[in-house]
Design a binder for these strands. Structure first.
Lengths: 333, 333
DNA sequence: TCAGTAAATGAAAACAATTTCAAACAGTTT
DNA sequence: AAACTGTTTGAAATTGTTTTCATTTACTGA
């Protein structure tokens, strides 16, 4: 009736050894005589014993699972990071509990709490803003946290990303070099330091260096979805923009298509650089020029960093900046 | 030094009650006098007590987490399902452990085993073929399993999908109605029953009804990636196809772009229907005609079904087929 | 042969909850 | 006042491991 589970106790009894010895065998502890090891292994095989990870977690205080907070798995930028995270996690024998937050501050805090209740060994956070409440939770629990593709201006927790400021500056400079004067900057809310602080600053620097006045009209805040592309393009047109730096690929596709649907030629009539180098950039026609971020690697490196923190290994740097470059494709001349 | 954790024991002591009573309060058991409940709640609040989910899991044999095996999070089709799964899981207080399998049979089995070792309360499997080994594991553990967007011809485990056979038949018929004679069918390996059995059968039925001979040249097996689109289109050209039904959106974009890059007009010179209705279908120009699958819902319903199985509730049907329809967009006349 | 050391083993105590079962209590009914 | 009922409560067992610490065994060199 009930699924009778084989426990370490059954194995011990059958093999005529103590639970401790079985535990040692299972965990690869070298202090077991080869003959005993073989005996135990045989019984394990015969009974088809599988250690119960929950009991293990309770006894050892390690669950070998890490929590991953992601705004939306359906967003290619984040899912690419997630893939890198999972691969490295698997490599180090961890599993990931994935939780969508929709970048909703309440959900983020709530999800973090349930992850901590589940005793995850570490957390990888993707999002935008680290609210005070979130930071408080981070430091209250002694669980290591690493941000992936997310910045913490205070650098209190580990993080992996690229230099958004420089990348944006480079993007704008490329458009400037192509002769544009009215270059727009489109991103999500400036409350997120990644946009309001870093990217915006890069944008301003480039303009300043070219002695072009900052025009608020050209700076647009919008959600990162395909469907708002049309409305955003309307605004761009109204502001007289002839080129734009867009902070999200999906939105960039929306803007690009809005331009094309209006009969414009890209890049002849309008130029565009996007920011994430997700698969989308090569799927559009023309293909989108983009900041090439090593998405998979950001996730992978973040997870690797987390493993170090979980093992209390020494780490050179808690904040790592990965290289990027700008790749001109079809949406710039 | 060590993070001193507050346990149920601390709460009991401080509140002057037994652990059992604290447990009752935490779990909302009604058999607690209101005054006691308040007293306990106050202490919980004061000590900031959080129940340890691992200990809970061990004692109650329920982890409130389900395992989700996904081929690749980075594939929009699957990530859309995953989003539906997670939302419903959250609604029912479950968390998901997500594991990428790359549709690799070995990885699938291995991942399933670690999920079971972690005592997940249920498993949602996305993939293609249910190998014998996998099925054996499914039935050996008494853990409920539901397939999402995946078929099991034997209908031994629960599953949620659409009628792939009919959908493919409809797609082909639409192309037939547009006057095509040489219609190709492009999918992944026919070893997957979803392709080799259902979709292919739908394809054949439509041809037969139109008295068109089945031509092997027109049936192409290929991986589901964007980058092979070019090679696939070459094959299509060689076989003289003037239209195609493609089983994956990403691949469909590749094929579409290959056609466009060769200077063809779509749908004038070549027609195409894709199968997943992911975001991609509206991002291309022209937009892709597609089988409209309720992606999010497939995931959501699968998870809902799983909750029923986990609670041993009666379920009307273990196999549910969701409705679909064909939406003609820009790649068909 | 015997001490000294290292390797191998086991008993029992954690780990932090839930669950079972019996006892205490309170409120009715006779 | 006793008997009966149902609600609250707590003691102790249970869950399946790991870990600590003591003990036994095996081996080495004097």
């Amino acid at each position: 009736m009930d699924k009778q589970t084989i426990t370490i106790y059954d194995v011990a009894r059958e093999a005529g050894v103590s639970m401790a010895t079985v535990s040692r065998v299972v965990n690869g502890n070298p202090n077991v005589k080869p003959t005993t090891r073989k005996k135990v292994l045989d019984v394990i095989d015969r009974l088809d014993y599988r250690p119960n990870a929950v009991a293990r977690g309770l006894a050892s205080k390690k669950t070998t699972t890490v929590g991953v907070i992601i705004p939306d798995v359906t967003n290619l930028y984040f899912s690419s990071l997630a893939r890198g995270i999972d691969d490295i996690a698997t490599m180090y024998k961890y599993n990931i509990i994935l939780a969508n937050s929709d970048e909703n501050e309440q959900k983020e805090v709530q999800v973090l709490n349930t992850l901590l209740a589940k005793q995850v060994d570490g957390v990888i956070f993707m999002g935008n803003k680290i609210t005070e409440e979130l930071r408080a939770e981070f430091s209250r629990s002694r669980t290591p946290v690493v941000l992936a593709g997310t910045v913490d201006p205070d650098e209190q927790v580990g993080s992996v990303n690229i230099d958004y400021e420089a990348a944006t500056k480079d993007s704008v400079e490329m458009l400037l070099a192509n002769g544009h004067q009215k270059i727009a900057f489109v991103s999500e809310s400036h409350e997120d330091p990644i946009n309001g602080q870093y990217r915006l600053s890069g944008y301003k620097q480039a303009l300043k260096a070219a002695s072009i006045a900052y025009d608020e009209e050209l700076v647009i805040q919008s959600e990162y979805t395909y469907k708002v592309g049309d409305a955003v393009f309307e605004q761009l047109t109204k502001a007289g923009a002839t080129a734009a730096v867009v902070a999200d690929d999906e939105l960039a596709v929306g803007v690009l298509n809005a331009a094309l649907d209006r009969g414009l030629s890209v890049p002849e009539d309008f130029e565009l650089i996007t920011s994430n180098n997700s698969k989308l950039t090569e799927m559009t026609r023309p293909q989108m020029s983009t900041v090439v971020q090593p998405l998979y690697d950001i996730g992978a490196v973040a997870m690797r960093l987390l493993t170090k923190l979980m093992n209390k290994e020494e780490t050179d740097e808690k904040t790592v900046k990965l290289p990027y470059h700008i790749e001109g494709k079809g949406t710039t001349k």
